[in-house]
Amino acid sequence: MEPKSPAPALYITGLGSQYPPYLLGPEEFEKFTARFYDMSRPGIKKLLQLNRSTGIETRSAIQPYETEFATQPDAPAISEIDQFFRQAGVDLTVQACKKALEEAQVAPRQITHTIGVTCTNSGNPGYDLLVARHLNLPPHVDRMLLHGVGCAGGLSILRAAAQIAGGASLRRKPARILAFACELCTPNLRHYLSLAETCTEADQPNIAGALFSDAAAAFVLCNEYAMAGNEQVPRLFELLEWGYDLIPNTIEHMSFYADIDGYRAVISRDVPEYTKHAIGPMFERLLPSYEEQVKSQSRAGGSQPLGSLGICDFDWALHPGGRAIIDGAAQVLQLSEDQLQATREIYRTRGNSSSASVLNVLDRLRSQSKKEHVVATSFGPGLSIEMALLRRCQLGEY
């Protein structure tokens, strides 16, 4: 039997989070609702009750509740939302990308690939082309824009980047991949409130209006050929294992699509129940390969043999999809508050920024982490689950 080829070396060399300038609390959302909608309607009452009980203290917002979309007599049309994203969303993404590029010590002309994701814009050409133009990336950069992955998108682009970088390694070519996610959910709040006002069943309003916020995030992922001969390039995380799966018979529990007046998210109350039971099996499936790669590195470096790893040995960058999702994962996996500190902090202070959120958590976690091993996991329509296992390279430097 031929010896097994070593896995390509893949490193996250730069990370950047970018939030818009406004932080809006539950009370401000309630005042905003009262300006336009009938507060006696059962759907509105229920949505505002949810708004006060999410555990989110402030949501990041691209605009306050006193300008533009928030002051128009009618909710903005989807064409207005599209136009706004392709200006404000692109600007926010560019800021996140510049942070990641600067940390990675990579010039725009050195980028070989870009991978973008969003679920709050569907324009063609994709917003990734606009981002590339603002960053002055070369016209021959290999671009990819993912669609249909929703809140899982932050790790979907990490998985795609890993596969592309691994393929480049097989061809002995460098890969310096700039990947980014951006979501602008605030311009869609009027649409969610309009839906809640017409909802006749108090237990059926769309919870999305009480959860979602705005943010962008970016990272640079390099293979070993991109880093050869340059020891100054930062190594933040080594990506060793990743995976994707669909949770059976759950397709109707989460969706996001363009409606005539805006984007509509559908999130059933059963989502936390499904997600909390999907995390453990995927982790157990990915762990043996991750563990073997870490052991091989330890042997090659002359380190002490590594013992078996388990859930308690990892910090967790969990998508902050909602308090029930976070609490459910903590309960089933028996995670400590230290392991979920970054997830809870992002959720409490910024809300759920969809595809960007898990990358925002990973960025925050590296300044708090005490552990060498990290799990990142997120969920999207399908229901899908994404997971990545990473080894922190700069332990104790923050």
Rank of each mutant, 00 (worst) to 15 (best):
N51Y: 00
T93S: 15
L383E: 03
A160E: 09
L129T: 04
Y22F: 14
P64L: 06
S308N: 10
A356Q: 04
A70F: 15
N230I: 04
A216V: 09
T93V: 12
I279F: 08
I81H: 01
V374T: 14
T250R: 01
I177S: 03
L178E: 04
G123Y: 02
Q331T: 07
G55L: 03
D82N: 11
Y19F: 15
E102N: 09
G16D: 02
E30L: 13
A160Q: 13
M144F: 13
R264L: 11
C393G: 05
G351D: 09
P76E: 10
E2H: 04
E103W: 09
V149D: 00
L129A: 07
V358S: 04
Y290H: 11
S289H: 12
Q83G: 14
R143A: 02
A226P: 15
S53I: 10
E201Y: 04
T200E: 14
A196V: 08
Q297G: 10
V374F: 06
W242V: 01
L389G: 08
T112A: 07
V233M: 13
K276E: 14
E337F: 06
D313G: 06
Q49E: 15
I111R: 02
T250N: 02
Y225L: 11
T54Q: 11
L10T: 07
E30V: 13
A202N: 01
L146W: 00
I177Y: 02
Q331P: 00
P108G: 09
S289E: 14
D313F: 10
Q293W: 05
M1Y: 02
Q49C: 06
V294S: 05
N249A: 13
T120R: 05
V94P: 03
G148H: 05
I56S: 08
F180H: 10
K370T: 15
A329D: 13
L48T: 03
H134V: 00
G43L: 09
A196K: 05
F36T: 08
P73S: 07
Q394D: 15
R52S: 13
L130H: 05
S53N: 15
L389T: 11
R171N: 12
A317D: 12
L309A: 04
P6T: 03
A356E: 03
L390A: 11
T13K: 02
L155V: 07
T200F: 00
A77T: 14
Y22V: 04
Y65S: 12
A104Q: 04
C222S: 11
G154C: 03
L10S: 07
I164A: 10
H319F: 09
E238W: 03
I62T: 12
I81Y: 01
I78F: 09
L383D: 03
A210F: 09
R133W: 01
A132V: 01
I207P: 08
C199M: 12
H140E: 14
S40M: 08
K173W: 01
A330Y: 01
R391H: 13
C185G: 02
A278W: 11
K370V: 12
S303W: 00
N124Y: 10
P21N: 01
A161T: 07
V233L: 15
S289M: 10
V271Q: 00
Y127R: 00
L383K: 02
T198Y: 02
S353Y: 00
F180L: 09
R348P: 13
F219W: 06
G262D: 08
N121S: 14
L335D: 06
P6C: 00
A9I: 08
R190K: 14
A208N: 07
T71V: 15
I346L: 15
L211F: 12
D270A: 13
I115L: 11
Y257E: 11
A210C: 11
D338Y: 05
G116R: 01
